[in-house]
Amino acid sequence: MEIAVIDYKGGNVQSVLFALERLGVQATLTSEPEVIRRADKVLFPGEGEAASAMRELRAQGLDELLPTLTQPFLGICLGMQLLGQHSEEGGGTDLLGILPFNVIRFPNAPEYKVPHMGWNNLQVLRSPLFEGLREEDYVYFVHSYYAPVGDYTIAQAEYPAPFSAAVQYKNFYAVQFHTEKSGPVGTRILENFLKL
């Protein structure tokens, strides 16, 4: 199985590569369109800021390529947000437009620090991605912006209102949390993705 991890200077890709290595899977870190197109599975990690990530994707032509992919695709953290239409981050940024959500910032509230950072539980699981998991299993989040709940939501979490912890449209799956850093629960989600 050929697994491509998309390299667009989008943050901590090494953790994703190590997580796959712990599963005994060899992955290729690449920004080559042909390698990505040919892969059996594509992972799209991301950290940092949406506007600079989009600039990098455009510079490499990946903004044109990614929406055309047909194999199972997993966005992680910023890699999930980038699949939406538009983000409030950095004064407003157009995204890849694969899913219909807009990305908005958590409101500042005394009891709810931003970023939403730490382990939160998953609710309303509805995807083979979460095979073997229980509602209330914990995963690790670090983010200041979020996608609201919609038809595309396949898992949600609360901070304090419900938001999309995971989304799906056709072959495009994506998780807001760091599945590569979420202990045995996160490992199981990666395994489930590799079986799709």
Partner: peptide, 11 residues
């Protein structure tokens, strides 16, 4: 850091 990251599945 590299050795720890290879081993560790929490942040």
């Amino acid at each position: 850091v590299r050795d720890v990251a290879r081993e560790l599945d929490i942040p």
